[in-house]
């Protein structure tokens, strides 16, 4: 947190009868906390998953522009939908909004429980005035990128790809968790930082039984308990090609 706060405010809906904030603004940072497909005037949510995603992204665009920014300033999106089948349309509409493969925000789509009638929710992190740089490990493909924006480095969900072959390493969960952490370290180095810049790591597995092994790998990778990033371990959708995925948030 900067020593001087020029801005610290909740961001409210443009409809003066809607009371729940849409997000926060802290200096140049915008953090959305309840973006969905709600019509900005009536508050109504309608449409199928594609329509709701498009409306949600329009609400994001409006909010960013109202704060004086553009979609170029979006650092990270997290989509939430209720069934695995809905992940693809969310991703497709996202790619329509961010069509440039070389310059798009970090992104992931998770499964979550949403209130009745709501098919998608989007949490976004925006750094007004800053632009993204995509960071890649050579040989390792990433559908959703790792980006550097301002002094932040934010990954999408990373996997245990071998840096020589690009393939997920063999050896199951333990090997994948170790390799994924190695890849996060490589990404933060490519961004000009080191492991000590990582402030948060979120891990993902299909079943809760992956948690101890991923935690053990984390503790080996960050041996000093006093210098470990915050760790959140979630059970959520993970592609059948792998056992574990991880993302990080780092501040240079």
């Amino acid at each position: 947190m900067p020593a001087t706060l020029k801005r610290l405010n909740e961001v409210y809906p443009s409809d003066v009868k809607s009371t729940v904030p849409l997000g926060l603004r802290i200096n140049d940072m915008l953090y959305t906390t309840s973006l969905n497909a709600a019509d900005p005037v009536t508050g109504e949510i309608s449409g199928d998953i594609r329509e709701q995603t498009a409306k949600t992204l329009q609400n994001l665009k409006d909010m960013v522009e109202k704060a004086g920014g553009t979609l170029d300033n979006v650092a990270r999106g997290v989509g939430y939908c209720t069934t695995p089948d809905d992940r693809t349309p969310v991703d497709e509409v996202w790619m329509e909004m961010f069509p440039n493969e070389k310059d798009k925000p970090a992104m992931k789509v998770l499964l979550g429980e949403l209130p009745a009638g709501q098919l998608v929710r989007l949490d976004a992190l925006v750094l007004l005035g800053a632009k993204r740089t995509r960071i890649d490990i050579p040989n390792v493909s990433a559908h959703d990128p790792t980006i550097k924006i301002g002094n932040w480095v934010i990954t999408s969900r990373c996997h245990g790809n071998d840096q020589a072959t690009g393939q997920i390493v063999e050896g199951g969960l333990d090997a994948e968790a170790k390799q994924t952490l190695t890849n996060l370290s490589t990404l933060i180095k490519l961004a000009g930082g080191s492991d000590s810049n990582i402030v948060q790591i979120n891990t993902y597995g299909r079943e809760a039984d992956y948690i101890p092994a991923a935690k053990a790998a984390f503790e080996v990778h960050f041996p000093d308990p006093a210098k470990r990033p915050a760790l959140n371990q979630q059970v959520n959708f993970v592609s059948s090609r792998m056992q574990v995925a991880m993302e990080m948030f780092a501040v240079l």
Partner: peptide, 27 residues
């Protein structure tokens, strides 16, 4: 920035976020 989850394993949407010297709970 640190996301805060109520029930990490089963609810992926943060209930709160820690931003420097502030915590804001929004869900």
């Amino acid at each position: 920035m640190q996301e805060i989850f109520a029930n990490q394993a089963h609810d992926p949407i943060p209930v709160a976020v820690k931003l420097g010297d502030l915590i804001h709970g929004a869900r």
